[in-house]
Design a protein around this nucleic acid. Structure first.
Length: 805
RNA sequence: GGGCGGGUGGCGGAAUUGGCAGACGCGUUGGACUUAAAAUCCAAUCUCUUUAAACAGAGGUGAGAGUUCAAGUCUCUCCUCGCCCACCA
């Protein structure tokens, strides 16, 4: 069939409106506008060579629907975007091809921008930011300097996770449970290195506690709390003959009379000093083996606990008992003090360990009477203490309190809170990141401090030099170490020669405060003006991927709280609401990945079906937090719907604006669903409307559809003779009066089973007598009721009448 | 092992929060249009029974119990799947 001029052709109308919208700039947020502000934030992408993927387009479209919706509702919407440009992939690509990250990243940004425009995303491009831009990272460096001044950034020599493939140190958060680097998949090793760290532990308490003030989905809060891992208990010092005390952390000080051994992690720093000469060989061998096991990925949760006796003894502070000191790899060095008191009677792991090495002797004291005969099982609950000296007879709760007090009085322990979260390793031995604005000065090191001197704030930004060789040395130094001219400088404090820090910041550095820079992207004097921060913050809705729940989200809350403490921002929390979008899998139900060959490219689909169809298809998949397998076949349903909408819109004869009850119902449903991010049901009610209503109220309908399908609705709006852009029209108002029909439907049940409906006038809907009479007239009901005894009639006003027989 | 969330047609998913289960879409089947196909349009589509067909009956939301006039929705037990964390002391 010949294509006539008015057939729906996204390939023509979409580029056309892209061009027009670019000129009109309708997605701009107006600073200090009197309209209510709405800050909708979607995670900015890392501009990779692969381009936007369907997960991106899904999340951004969801944000875009909200932005367009709230604009139509007369709010001052801030919907910004930018580029998280620093990071390993660009650098690895540079190492491989010699092309500079600056170049490849800017090319990638261009193609991302093109894809975003093609999708019809109404970002406020006047606020575009780029973390690798020195005008931006000036402020990332500035924040680092403030943290240094407050003692929250410090350098320490420590064992860190080292990726031998990327040749860089990693934060704990970047290592997967299998012991691989989350980005490249290679096995992570341990190395001792000098690292910059940020003291996130100082904020652990408030990062955990303040979650309670936030109205976020419970599972996201739980995940963060879990990650922070707060537990209450006691730090207890065990005296060692001829050596320093060993400190252990326990959540169960009430079981201390049951301690059968002190057990250290094989990586515990004091292990050498505590090993007796005649045990040294055996201990060294054990440590070697357990390290090897850890490198292989370490089998977690082994039932079989292994360990060796160090040959020395510790004194239990509460009863003076002499207990052996062991090392065992079921004790991790990362948690607590890296040492524990083993209580076989009341801890399953300690029990397994003690059983294996025959520690189940008289030391296995049982403070809790219910389980005084422990042979094969363990009691991990709470109870009333026995065999616990002066504490016998107390409940666990009382005993925990009393024992902590007792220990504290004698200086051998105290109540303590322990966190799982560690200080944040903030150095990377890589090129493509923000330079750390610090120099090392030999001269200053002699007189005071450790020799690390911060740059003067006025000298920021410290620009990343252009280098020829992006290859990391592999000896632990960054590629920047080879940029001699840049490295050698003078000390800002004393003026003598000094060397710059050659490590760079991790890729989280730029992204943990970016939402502030959108508010005031061109400010040369400060990272954000106070007035703008006050006006726009907090972010009203932050949409992003679940993989950032414990990393980016926690880091950025930390930085924001720090900025609050130094008076830069007025809000304690950056995000009023966080929603994680789910995942879109390949058509085969597996994670999309190049190696499976199941990656769906949104570009090709936009080209083939049009952006409106792709947008609506993704939102129609189901709730935004769900996981779905992509299915190109069912994309056709949305396409058919838009074809039908088009056909109705252009058919001859303008219909009268009809305010049918169905239209009102649809306005109400779509409005409510968008607010609750239930896009899939909003779309289905739009489909229902088209199925039922034909052309009544079409101009209202086009406005309801506009946030979802911005191109086709704009075109139809103009074909229909609408003035201006459909996207600047007011959102249709729901008028409940019009939905009130002249009848109310009441369901009729017999014994709770549905049998039919009756329709009565609104006035009669609450009249039991009328409804019952009408219900009895229903043929089916009448047939069943005839000859039966009615025991009871339940009547719910306006809803149900139920005959119990 | 710990935390969180699920289990509804062939499939993705609805259900105004206790009141007509399966909206909407995909798929499938039949029909219309066509020389034919595609596209489009119309109709049917939870299961079983009776039936010529059913606008006739019955059952049905992982399994089992319970609360209620009424349960996909609330309570308990069990099974099962997913995600996150994990020898966390």
């Amino acid at each position: 069939m010949q294509k006539d001029a008015v057939s729906y052709n996204p390939r023509i109308i979409e580029p056309k409106w892209q061009r027009i919208w670019a000129k009109e700039d309708t997605s701009k947020a107006n600073d200090f506008s009197k309209k209510p502000k709405k800050y909708i934030l979607t995670e900015f992408p890392y501009p990779s060579g692969a381009g936007l993927h369907v997960g991106h387009s899904w999340g951004y479209t969801a944000g875009d629907v909200l932005a367009r919706f709230y604009r139509m509702r007369g709010e001052n919407v801030l919907f910004p975007i930018g580029w998280d440009s620093f990071g390993l992939p660009a650098e690895n690509y540079a190492v491989k091809t010699g092309r500079s990250p600056q170049k490849t990243v800017s090319e990638n940004i261009k193609s991302f921008r093109g894809q975003m425009d093609a999708l019809g995303l109404s970002f406020d491009w006047g606020r575009e930011i780029n973390t690798a831009d020195s005008a931006y990272y000036k402020w990332t460096q500035w924040i680092f300097l403030q943290m240094f001044k407050k003692g929250l950034a410090y350098k320490a020599r420590m064992p860190i996770n080292w990726c031998p493939s990327c040749k860089t140190g990693l934060a704990n958060e970047e290592v997967t449970p299998n012991g691989t680097h989350e980005r490249c998949g290679n096995k992570v090793e341990q190395r001792d290195m000098e690292q910059w760290l940020l003291k996130i532990t100082n904020y652990a308490q408030c990062l955990a506690d303040d979650l309670d003030k936030l109205d976020w989905p419970k599972h996201i809060k739980d995940m963060q709390k879990n990650w922070i891992g707060k537990s209450e208990g006691a730090m207890i010092k065990f005296k060692i003959q001829n050596s320093k005390n060993i400190e252990v952390f326990t959540t169960r000080p009430d079981t201390i009379f049951g301690a059968a051994a002190v057990v250290l992690s094989p990586k515990h720093p004091q292990i050498g000093k505590l090993t007796a000469k005649d045990c040294a060989d055996e201990v060294a061998e054990y440590i070697k083996q357990s390290l090897a096991k850890a490198e292989r990925g370490g089998i977690l949760n082994e039932k079989d606990k292994t360990g060796v006796f160090l040959g020395s003894y510790a004194i239990n502070p509460v009863n003076g008992e002499k207990i052996p000191v062991w090392t065992a790899d079921y004790v991790s060095v990362d948690y607590g003090t890296g040492a524990i008191m083993a209580v076989p009677a009341h801890d399953a792991r300690d029990f397994a360990f003690a059983k294996k090495y025959n520690l189940l002797t008289k030391q296995v004291v049982v403070p809790v009477f219910e389980n005084s005969n422990i042979k094969d099982a363990v009691f991990e609950g709470y109870g009333v203490l026995v065999n616990s000296g002066e504490f016998s007879g107390m409940s666990s709760k009382e005993a925990i309190f009393a024992i902590c007090k007792w220990l504290e009085k004698r200086g051998c322990g105290k109540y303590a809170v322990n966190f799982k979260i560690h200080d944040w390793v903030f150095s990377r031995q890589r090129y493509w990141g923000e330079p750390i604005p610090m120099v090392y000065c030999e001269n200053c090191a002699k007189s005071k401090g450790d020799g690390w001197v911060p740059l003067d704030e006025k000298s920021l930004p410290l620009e990343l030099p252009v280098v020829k060789d992006y290859k990391p040395a592999g000896d632990g130094s960054s590629p920047l170490a080879k940029a001699g001219e840049w490295v050698n400088t003078t000390c800002p404090r004393c003026g003598s020669s000094a060397k710059r820090e050659t490590d760079t910041m991790p890729n989280w550095a730029g992204s943990n405060w970016y939402f502030l820079r959108y508010l005031d992207p061109d400010n040369r004097d400060f990272l954000v003006s106070k007035n703008l921060e006050k006006y726009y913050m907090p972010v009203d809705l932050y949409l992003g991927g679940p993989e950032h729940t414990t990393l980016h989200l926690l880091y950025s809350r930390f930085i924001h709280k720090f900025l609050y403490d130094i008076g830069v921002v007025s809000s304690e929390e950056p995000y009023a609401l966080r929603i994680n979008r789910g995942m879109i899998l390949g058509e085969d139900g597996r994670k999309m990945s190049k190696s499976f060959g199941n990656v769906v490219n949104p570009n090709e689909l936009v080209e083939k079906f049009g952006a409106d169809t792709v947008r609506m298809y993704e939102l129609f998949l189901g709730p935004i937090e769900g996981t779905y397998a992509w299915n190109t076949a069912s994309l056709i349903g949305v396409k058919r719907f838009l074809d039908r909408v088009w056909a109705l819109g252009i058919s001859a004869g303008r219909p009268p604006l009809k305010n049918s009850a169905l239209l009102q119902k649809t306005i109400n449903k779509v409005t409510r669903d968008i607010k609750e991010l239930k896009f899939h049901t909003a779309i289905s009610s739009l489909m229902e409307y088209i199925n039922e209503a034909g052309r009544g109220g079409f101009s209202v309908f086009v406005r309801l559809l506009a946030p979802f399908a911005p191109f086709v609705t704009e075109e139809l709006w103009h074909i229909m003779g609408g003035k201006g852009s459909v996207h600047t029209q007011p959102w249709p108002k729901y008028n409940p009066v019009l939905i009130k029909s002249d009848k109310v439907t009441i369901s009729v049940q017999i014994n709770g089973k549905f049998k039919g409906v009756v329709e009565v006038s609104p006035a009669d809907a609450g009249d039991r007598g009328v409804v019952e009479k009408r219900a009895r007239e229903v043929e089916k009901v009448n047939n069943i009721l005839r000859g039966r005894e009615i025991k009871k009639v339940i009547f719910v006003t306006g809803k149900t009448i139920n005959f119990v027989v």
